[in-house]
Amino acid sequence: MARLEVENLVKRFGPVVAVDGVSFSVEAGEILVLLGPSGCGKTTVLRCIAGLEHPQAGDVRVDGRSLLGLPPERRGVGLVFQRYALFPHLSVAANVAYGLRHGWPRLPRAQRQRKVAELLALVGLSGYERRRPHELSEGQKQRVALARALAVEPKVLLLDEPLSALDAALRGELRHELRRILKERNTTAVYVTHDQTEALALADRVGVMRAGKLEQVDRPQDLYERPRTPFVAQFLGRANLWLARVVRLQPPKAWVEVAGLTVEAEVLAPPQGGEALLFFRPEWVETGHGPFQAELREAEYLGDHWEVRGRVQGLPLVLRTPTIPENPLSFRIMRAFLLPTAE
């Protein structure tokens, strides 16, 4: 398996800048998930890597060799399409064998059959060789698409929202299976999704994209616990972001004033000017006592905890508490970060 590098990629469609200077690298055997809202340019990045779009600037390298001059069929990059793009006139086996038969190198028939059997077994579809795509369920189509893409043993596998058409239960199941298969074959993969749960569960590392730019690439827990921009903080999980005045700055520590109180926070990125955003997750608090008084508006019971929403002197708040919340609720912020306001 190979290492993928994307450097300073720029893709414009007419006046629209879809990808605006994106750089990242994926180590051999690593799964990188590109996460972002729809229209953020993540699919375009994939298509540039696959050679289906031509970037105006930047480079795409596999094991140090640039792919840019090569047509898609000579890049050794696999792609699983969002709606699978199975060939409707071919059987499952013929779909999986397609690249082995018509691509390069061309395998002899017996080898092809062996490979198809192996891959169908891998995705759990042995016995489905002669079915046509329209006779399969969505989940089965997805597996065939994966098997087809893996059959040609691409150096890098790209997956474009491969689970988005499935229902929630199936999505959860396939998510684990997908990770198992990719890891079992030690595949270098770039996976595009807008679903944060999927991203956190699948990825070795996650890159969050917004408006054509990559905001942050990190391991899932780092991304969750130490987001570098308000957007990342909000996009992954729930977040409280309060506009605060910086009282004292002494990196890596800072003190800010918010709702008439002074709070200590860790500095992830230095704030610009005298204002900054105070960021903390709903679970980073201790409830029942503390300097903050929240007026609660709603409370949801979620089994092992309660999630409550309310306001602290006009600032919106979401909190997690293990006990039945009282109203007003006092709490203390146990851990907080300071993020810059500028977007």
Binding site: L52, E73, F81, A85, Y98, G99, H102, G103
Partner: peptide, 22 residues
């Protein structure tokens, strides 16, 4: 679906052959 021809390309199949087979 334009994805069908793109699928051929990423499976390493050249345009003419993709035209003939898909």
């Amino acid at each position: 679906d334009p994805a069908l021809e793109e699928a051929c390309a990423v499976l390493g199949v050249r345009r003419f052959r993709a035209f003939l087979t898909v």
